[in-house]
């Protein structure tokens, strides 16, 4: 009796597994980027910085599609990791950081020297099975803006970040992407830390009105 039941069960179970496997193969895998970032080892710039994270940055996501079929393969949710990065980096770079709900500070926010608005302009992902290289790669282009509290622009510049991580045997795509993203975001943090005061328009603004703001350039 038990044998008869088993012989009925096994084909059904196999069919169920095959359907499940097919569905899993077609489904889009979601990868939520996360990680922890160290605070930079630099002297703080004596400024109070307002920071506005636009909704496009907060909710930034990237979809990797199959070039041949057009199927969506991976959905990378990036926004939360960006906020975590900037929320670690900026308080270590500036004397005081105030998070803003809009580009222009609301009355009563307090004295703010400038408003910083980061955004991701472009994102590229390189997967080993597509590039035929044994590394995961992430490249990001940021559009960074610094403006006065009245909305007048101080500086608008572009920064790129690149990260690669070697492919390891039996490694999940999620893990490889996370490793590459971590390197890329550290790359951005390093560039912004050492390069912020060196952006020509920012440098001119600092020299014009904030002479106490110490530049943090390499070797200075």
């Amino acid at each position: 009796m038990l044998r008869a039941n088993n012989s009925m069960y096994i084909p059904r179970l196999l069919a169920f597994c095959l359907v499940l496997l097919a569905l899993t193969g077609c489904a889009t895998s979601t990868i939520v980027l996360n990680g922890t970032y160290p605070a930079p080892l630099v002297r703080k710039i004596p400024l109070t910085l307002g920071v506005y994270y636009p909704p496009e940055l907060r909710n930034y996501a990237f979809t990797e599609t199959d070039a041949e079929t057009g199927d969506k393969q991976y959905l990378l949710q990036i926004g939360a990791s960006q906020l975590k990065l900037f929320n670690t980096l900026l308080p270590a770079l500036f004397d005081k950081v105030v998070l803003l709900d809009s580009v222009q500070p609301m009355p009563g926010t307090g004295a703010i020297d400038a408003v910083f608005i980061p955004a991701i302009a472009e994102f590229q992902l390189g997967l080993p099975h597509k590039t035929r290289m044994q590394v995961y790669e992430i490249w990001m282009k940021y559009d960074l803006k610094l403006s006065k509290t009245n909305g007048e622009q101080i500086a608008d510049w572009v920064m790129t970040a690149y990260g690669k991580a070697p492919q390891e045997s039996l490694q999940l795509v999620d893990s490889g992407v996370q490793n590459a993203a971590m390197v890329a975001m550290r790359d951005l943090a390093a560039s912004l830390t050492l390069g912020f005061a060196e952006v020509p328009a920012v440098k001119a603004w600092l020299q014009a009105g904030h002479r106490n703001a110490v530049t943090q350039g390499y070797g200075e």
Partner: peptide
């Protein structure tokens, strides 16, 4: 060490 010395020993810096 890399975390303690950040950002001075990153691949780019």
């Amino acid at each position: 060490f890399l975390d303690a010395m950040f950002p001075f020993f990153e691949p780019r810096t």
